[in-house]
């Protein structure tokens, strides 16, 4: 009996170690997902072609994509994250252009939303103010931040937009996967239609 149990335990250990190896290549914690840099080829390019209608145009304040010429995938993902994290209150300030003070502050304060004892003000705001307001706030923040980073904004049909965008209230892994798809769009061919500006 005990040999059968031992054999079963070894088999389970074997399966577990393979699973552990596969798991090790995927980000595990939120922090790891926020630093995940996938291969561009692994990320599906979303469908963007559509016949524009008046109804589509009236929704471009909500459904749009960002694009910047001569920008590679990694840079675009970094920029999308910069804006997404700034919007969520996950970025330290830089009070002085030479960053010397920021370095000191980082040592004193630890990470924002750190593994121990951290709390993100934005997350609290989500709870207090409800989702409608947070969606509106996110649109404002992403439009402004991406514009000032030099990205152009193009309108997109709602259904196409929903496939790879989000308005808030999602888990970190899903957020990062969608940002990666948005980065493919931002670094890909120029989207159809006119630039909408800020």
């Amino acid at each position: 009996m005990k040999y059968a149990i031992a054999a079963l335990a070894l088999a389970c250990a074997g399966v577990a170690s393979v699973a552990a190896q596969e798991a090790a290549t995927q980000p595990q914690t939120d922090q790891e997902w926020m630093a995940w840099m996938p291969d561009e080829a692994e990320i599906a390019m979303p469908a963007l072609a559509f016949e524009e209608t008046g109804g589509d145009r009236s929704n471009y304040d909500k459904y749009y994509i960002f694009h910047r010429p001569d920008t590679d995938f990694q840079t675009a993902l970094g920029d999308l994250r910069t804006c997404d994290e700034s919007a969520r209150g996950l970025r330290r300030g830089n009070y002085f252009p030479d960053s010397s003070q920021t370095a000191t502050n980082m040592m004193q304060y630890g990470p924002i939303g750190g593994a121990v004892g951290g709390l993100i003000a934005g997350a609290m705001m989500d709870a207090i103010f409800g989702s409608g307001e947070m969606r509106a706030k996110r649109r404002v923040n992403m439009r402004r931040c991406m514009f000032y980073l030099g990205y152009s904004r193009f309108g997109l049909q709602k259904d196409l937009w929903t496939a790879f965008n989000f308005e808030g209230g999602i888990e970190e892994p899903e957020r990062q996967r969608l940002l990666a798809q948005q980065a493919r769009v931002a670094s890909g061919p120029r989207p159809q239609g006119e630039e909408l500006g800020l």
Binding site: R91, G93, I120, A121, N141, R144
Partner: peptide
Amino acid sequence: PVPSLPNWYGGTI
């Protein structure tokens, strides 16, 4: 100039 500030209150940036 001050290049950036943290979004302490989760407001608009």
